[in-house]
Structure formats: C-alpha cells, structure tokens
Design a protein around this nucleic acid. Structure first.
Lengths: 272, 272
DNA sequence: TAAATAGTGTCTTTGAGACACTATTTC
DNA sequence: GAAATAGTGTCTCAAAGACACTATTTA
C-alpha cells in the first residue's frame, strides 16, 4: 500500500518548496489572430535585447504564481490586453475567442533558463494598432504570409521577420489549429463584427485557409448548417467593392459545432 | 523602441533565477487508455497520504528541470513506464500513441502549492497489470465507466472511486479527445495488436464511443478509407466468440488522417 | 443443429461541388 | 453602360446508413 504513494508523496513534498527543487519557470504566450485587409495577421512584439534582439516574438510573460495568483487563461487575457492596449474589461476583448493551444517545454528553447510556455490561441475581430507608448510600443499586427512559415514549423531562408525562440513552431501550430477549427466550429464569426454578411464570413475562411471558395455554394452551405448564423433582418450599407447587390446581415447563431462540418477542399496532401 | 522590450526583458531577467520569483512547479500527468474485456480502461494510482489519501490519481510527477533536464513527452513516457512496469525501450510502450492533452494550472488545484500540470493522453494496446512492488504497487487499470464522470467533468455522487485534484476534469477531457480522435485519425489501431481484425477494430470504436456500430457498414467503411488498414493476407485463428467465419487480418496503413472521416452517430445533443 | 458472426450487395437519402442564371449595385 | 457581386436553381456524384442475404464457424 505504501510503495507508490510514498514515492508520489515524496515527489510532492520535494516540490513543496520549489526553491529546493529543479527551477522551472512558467510563461504564457498568445498567438492572437485577426483579419486585416483580407489577410490573416498575428500580433507580434519586437525584442530589443539579447537573446534574439531585433527578432519578433509572441506577446507573453510569466504567470503570476503565488502573489496575485492567476489562472492560465487569465494570464493570457492580461498579456493580450497589455500588448494590444485594449482594456480587458468591457471592450472588444470581450468578444475575443481564447483557447489553449499547447505547451512547449523542450530544454534549451530559452537559452537562459528552463522555461515551460503555455501557448494560447486567440481569434479577434479587427482591433486598433497596438498603441505606441505603454507596454505595446513595439507591437504590431503582422501578415502571417510575411513570416515564411514552412510546414515543418520553421521559417524559410530569406524571410526578413525572424521569430525568436521556438515561436515559429508555435505560430505554425496555431495556424493549423485555426484552419481546423473553422471546419468544425462556427468560430469564424469571432473574426467578424457582431453583425456581418455572408461574403464577409467567406472572406474569413479564405484568409485562414488561403484558398478561394465558391461564393454560391458557400452561401447555401452556411445557411443550411443549423445554428451557424441567424438573420438580423438588416442589409449592409453598400454592395461589394466593385459592384453587386447589398448583402443581408447576420449574427452568430447558438451552435457550438458545425454539423455537417464545412470541410476545406484539397487536403489530399496532408493525409499521409 | 525600448518600451515593450525593456518590459519583456525585465520579466525574463526576474525569472532568470526562479528562486527569486514566484514559485510555480511543473508536473506531467498521463491519461493512459487501453481496452480490456471490451471496455475502455484508464491507468490510475492510489494515493496513500493526504491530501486526497485513499483517492485515485493519474500517474504523474515533476518534470526534471535542469539536472537531467527532459522534454515534456519524455517525462510522460518515463511516468508511464514507471507506473506500468513496462520498460520504455523496445517493449510494447514503443507502440503506444502519445499526444499532449492540455495544461491545467488553476490556483488551488493542489492545496499545498502552485502546480501547473501538463497532461498527456496515451492510447495503448493491452498491457499487463501494473506490477506489484517497485513504483507501481498500487496502480491499476480502471474501467472508465466506474468513475461516474459527468459531462461537466466531475464525478456523480455515490461513485466509490473518487479522483484526486482536478483529475476528473482531466480524464473527462482525455476521453472526449479520444472519442474525437477516432473520428478523424486511424489511431484506433493504436489500441490493437500489430495484426488485428476489422471486428476487433470495431470493438475499439464501440468501447471508446460507448455505442454499437453496424458491423456491415463499419467493415465496408474501414476498407474504403485509403490507408486506414492494409491486408496481411492472413486469417484469424478462430471466428467470433459465439460463432461465425474467421475474420481476415490487417495491420495499420500509412494514412495519418481518415478521409472521409468516420463520424460518430447521434451527436445532435453536443452541437448546441 | 441452432445461433451468431464475417463479409457483400443494394437501395435510399443527404450533402458537396460544378455550373448556370437573375437581380442589384459600383465605378 | 460594363463589370462585379449576392443569392438561388439545378444537376451530378460521393458517401452514409438501412436492410437483406450468404457463407462460415462456435457451442
């Protein structure tokens, strides 16, 4: 009866005061995505000092452990609010979708110390540029295409905006998660204003998937999935950029999963 | 130019020696699943001392941070090997599927200190009972149905096997992930021996989903998905338990995703 | 011999995608 | 007025599921 418990207990007791144990630091990093000018952007912060001085990194920081202890999603919202300059309460951050992406803890990923980083993924409607001054002077929404990410999770040679640490891997994982989430959930609406049109929703899918979709089939599909969107009865102020009738307005429905799903075309390569 | 970097750098420098910073401990817990007697089981360890003495917990322990620093999946494999008594190298653990499930770090989840726990999910073929003696004297494969888990991630009143910490939530999340993974990936084969029959594969789906599947349609569906299984040419030693012809043998194919997917029936409730 | 099971055939219904077409709006 | 776009109609093909049926094996 005592064997494993003793061992278990001993381990916990050793950990009881981490100062006497292996020092591991815990941070939270956020992959915040938004759509700007029809392209997918990610929020990045420029580093001023070594290591990785001059390179770009995800917004993030240490989790407040004991004093003002905070939960992990709380820490992620705090980081996001700090870097975007948008207050966490009551503002547009209320409409941001936040989910845990994964935890990255390989020894050596930070050259200075052992850091275990919990990454969060955020889907945001269009937000203002990060404010100059304050904590966010050197933050910017960056088109993900400018990062030259490869399928392997690193950056193509010649890419000018280099990512620090293993953040290329984390952003890659976040993008793949986002692409997948748009298939099975109605979270594309999290990138939109509270009222949106079907063509706007289609633009979100096209930006995240990097593929053009058939406008007619997309329209019918969205309306046919129960609870995806619901009509507001209204109509947009104007038609398409270069012509066309004024589209109708919708808001997000009450579905949490899309059924049937809205699968992306042409995934043949990814299967094997 | 200096604002956010300074702030970023300051945070890192504060963390440089975690003894001078907020103490947070990092552990790895494993939700190891297997099929026994046609039912889904999870590997649990019985706790001998407070807190939660007498209750069951997931196998897990502290991540080796600096001395013998190990990566997170490494730590998960180590914990699994310790608790199952199966050596990590060369044995059946080589065939275990392991993936990160999520990270749980709410303040107060461990009453003694701030612990951030990275949970891993494992799919294992049938393994021996955890060995008595050594680290695993009080470990056991437990039918998940005996845990009385609710959709909300806690345990029904009256359930005798109580789970410690927030492990009911973690096991619930693991089960939901497993159900979902069987839809889109060929990982059901990770629960099987290297050679298996279609009815055995169906039994895996039925155990994980908790639903009976139509034998004929399942058979055709599995064979129609490219790369799911490939024939060995062989035939099983005997037919079904209570009669029937000897099924053919297959091994896992080279697909990493099922296309089209093998969706579970009747998810209507989960959608809203 | 009775009952269960492996595996196949077939039919119906649903849904995805291609294509066509009209009406409306912008430049 | 020309071009683009919103939205709908229709056709075809793939796939899921229901049902039926044969052949084979166990108890």
């Amino acid at each position: 009866m005592a064997g494993p418990d003793e061992q278990d207990e001993r381990a916990f007791l050793e950990g009881y005061d981490p100062r006497a144990y292996d020092p591991v630091a815990v941070t939270v990093d956020v992959v915040a995505l938004t759509i700007r000018d029809g392209a997918l952007h990610v929020l990045l912060v420029r580093r001023g000092e070594p290591p990785f001085a001059g390179m770009w990194a995800l917004p993030g920081g240490f989790v407040r452990g004991v004093r003002d202890a905070e939960d992990l999603p709380e820490a992620a919202v705090r980081e996001l609010a700090e870097e975007t300059g948008v207050s966490a309460e009551g503002g547009p951050l209320e409409r941001v979708h936040l989910e845990q992406l994964g935890t990255y803890g390989a020894p050596g990923r930070d050259p200075r110390m052992r850091v275990v980083s919990v990454a969060y993924l955020a889907f945001a409607p269009e937000l203002p540029d990060p404010e100059a001054g304050g904590d966010a002077a050197d933050a910017a929404w960056t088109p993900v295409d400018a990062l030259g990410l490869t399928e392997a999770g690193d950056q193509r040679p010649g890419t000018t905006r280099r990512l620090a640490f293993d953040h290329a891997r984390i952003v890659s994982d976040g993008l793949e998660r986002a692409r997948s989430k748009l298939e099975y959930t109605p979270l594309a609406t999290a990138f939109c204003a509270p009222e949106f049109t079907i063509p706007e929703l289609r633009a979100v899918y096209e930006a995240v998937w990097g593929e053009e979709l058939h406008a007619g089939n997309f329209h019918r599909k969205v309306l046919s999935v129960p609870g995806f969107v619901e009509s507001t009865g209204g109509t947009a102020d104007r038609g398409g950029r270069r012509g066309g009738p004024r589209p109708k307005l919708y808001r997000a429905g009450d579905a949490r999963l899309l059924h049937p799903a809205l699968l992306r075309p042409s995934r043949e390569e990814e299967i094997r």
